[in-house]
């Protein structure tokens, strides 16, 4: 039983990181209809900034990263993606892929290609013991902060005018415009929030026992099955999908490792199942079109 609980806790911690990354994708997708392939790079850059500034204080590192990433995300949206409005989906996807490649090259030039430190900070390396289960403080932090962030996001969307505007814009662009909602402003805010979520994900992905490295981009892309499982346009779906992927990966490696690499493909098997049975994802909704 301890074994199961231990694996479940680790799976939840990993799942929360995927959920944060997934939320970043969803925020941008809902507001501007763009699948931002550069988001994993935002996650990596955040981690590098925090790791570089940790010697001067973890708080400073996070603060600087928050400002930088929110600014970077908004600049990308304003300078590049807004100019592509009305262009084909292919052009927009290529633009975000281009941003991703550029971001990786900039990181390689600035910090080199080797792993670089950690974003550990106050999370520490200790463990909290509950019965026979060791809960690493990093995992406790990840789950706690993720829950707090989710609660804040929920309150923002449900209880504030700005949140209402974002929801309206996500539900129906034209209707939102007709109501006088400033779509440019909505998109700027969404990209900014995605930048903030990238910092949270980057900090947790680069914290002990992991390290900050260029591989983080690949890891962040691991959130893609989570998005499909949860449903592309759904914030709740991103959370449930992220948790599902984390749990499947860790529990799978604990109980199914004997059967070759089957645990590695479990998230993708789940993704295919969802696509087959409910193509819009567990929390997504199918949009009917009048023809």
């Amino acid at each position: 039983m301890d074994n199961f609980l231990q694996l479940t806790f680790q799976g939840m911690a990993l799942g929360c990181v995927y959920a944060l990354i997934g939320l970043g994708f969803v925020m941008v997708f809902k507001s501007s209809g763009v699948f931002n392939f550069a988001h994993p790079v935002f996650v990596m850059i955040s981690a590098y900034i925090v790791a570089a500034l940790v010697p001067h204080g973890f708080g400073w590192g996070v603060l600087v990263a928050l400002v930088c990433m929110a600014a970077l995300a908004i600049v990308c949206e304003k300078i590049i993606l807004r100019r592509l409005a009305g262009r084909s989906l292919y052009v927009v996807i290529m633009a975000t892929l281009g941003l991703s490649v550029m971001g990786q090259a900039v990181v390689a030039m600035a910090w080199g290609v080797n792993p670089r430190g950690s974003t550990e900070g106050p999370m520490g390396r200790g463990v909290l013991r509950v019965g026979g289960v060791a809960l690493p403080w990093t995992g406790v932090w990840i789950i706690t902060v993720s829950l707090v962030l989710l609660a804040v996001l929920y309150l923002f969307f449900q209880r504030t005018r700005y949140g209402l505007a974002l929801r309206a814009a996500a539900d129906h662009h034209e209707a939102a415009l007709a109501q006088g909602i400033n779509m440019r402003w909505v998109q700027t805010i969404s990209w900014g929030i995605a930048g903030v979520l990238a910092v949270a994900a980057g900090v947790f992905l680069g914290a002990f026992p992991r390290r900050v490295s260029p591989d983080m981009v690949d890891t962040a892309l691991g959130a893609l099955p989570a998005l499909v499982i949860g449903g592309f346009g759904s914030l709740a779906g991103a959370v449930v999908g992220g948790m599902s992927v984390g749990l499947l990966l860790v529990l799978g490696s604990g109980y199914l490792a004997e059967y070759g690499g089957v645990h590695v493909v479990l998230p993708y098997v789940a993704m295919l199942l969802v696509l087959t049975l409910r193509p819009s994802g567990l929390f997504g909704h199918h949009e009917a079109e009048r023809i």
């Binding site: 694996l7 680790q10 490792a257």
Partner: peptide, 11 residues
Amino acid sequence: KAEDFTAQVLK
């Protein structure tokens, strides 16, 4: 690409 090694260590 694994990010968690709990299962391997516990084993």
